[in-house]
Nucleic acid binder design. Structure first.
Lengths: 158, 158
DNA sequence: GAAATTTAGTTATCGTCAATAACCATTTAT
DNA sequence: ATAAATGGTTATTGACGATAACTAAATTTC
């Protein structure tokens, strides 16, 4: 065992036959996503900071004052999940809930100063990590990949 | 609520700013993977049949007689997880554990007749579903996407 | 304008799942 | 022969996410 991090996952072992799996686009997406996740953890250092939690911070940073329900909608979370995710950052002094003057039920979510600093850090770390993920592609190829992925993602809901 | 299935997930809501998220390849992978997963469930009909469990069946079909440890290695599972996954199919009469003559500790995993039939079905359903996933791409674009994805997945472990 | 309904948010409870640890049986190494 | 390693199962635990139930505040309806 030489590799402590990332489980040292070998994506395909040439000794075995994977049937039709490698020809399925969805399978490739899943593998790519797993790989992303593994590397993400290494890059960020803190295992508690998952892609989802980072996404939350990013979205709050870009849209200060959103309601929790709105955040849940954007991130595809249930209400309780949103509550927990916000709790996570609030206990770390990165997010604050501020009362909304117009509607005293709802609470606007904002970055604290520490949160802004943390986000600035994370953005850099993660952008760099993301570049490593695709370092084997030329710039043109990467742009192409992204635009193809975009179209697949935005595709019809079926 | 018109859409019962697939949660009707809207991938991006143009009303909000997603920060740098949409420019991260890893984020696109994750979204694509989520989309794959959602559609997979709809296509197969049985929610219990996850991509992972299908992968297991596919790999056993392509490599009859593998040990459980080998399967775990190929699929990136822990030993207990492999045990459970095999149990899943065995209780459905699709896989069988056969004693290994040379090593009485280990057990070879094989498709049953029912398992072969089930796999044949699933292969077709899933191949069709996978095609739908990328129906907005031309044949050339799809081939390109796949080859780019392959290279990313096979990339260095970092 | 009071009662009923809806909505934002939290808390409680549950089920799933995967990982670790502990365990048995068998094989390999010393 | 004994010790160490390996294949497999079972038991236990912890992380999550989902639903349900609840509070508080807003909106609707008559």
């Amino acid at each position: 065992m030489t590799d402590k991090q990332s489980k040292g996952i070998r994506m395909f072992d040439p000794a075995f036959d994977y049937g039709q799996l490698p020809s399925l686009t969805g399978f490739l997406f899943r593998k790519a996503s797993l790989r992303t996740f593994a590397i993400f953890g290494d890059a960020v250092g803190d295992r508690a900071i998952t892609p989802l939690r980072y996404s939350l911070l990013e979205v709050v940073g870009a849209n200060p004052g959103l309601q929790q329900v709105q955040l849940a909608g954007i991130l595809g979370l249930s209400k309780p999940a949103a509550t927990l995710a916000i709790d996570f950052w609030q206990t770390r002094d990165c997010l604050s809930r501020r009362p909304d003057a117009r509607d005293r039920r709802s609470r606007g979510i904002y970055l604290t100063e520490a949160g802004q600093a943390r986000l600035d850090d994370l953005r850099i770390i993660i952008a760099r990590q993301d570049a490593q993920l695709t370092e084997m592609l030329s710039e043109d190829e990467l742009a192409l990949l992204k635009s193809l992925m975009q179209r697949v993602i935005e595709g019809p809901v079926l």
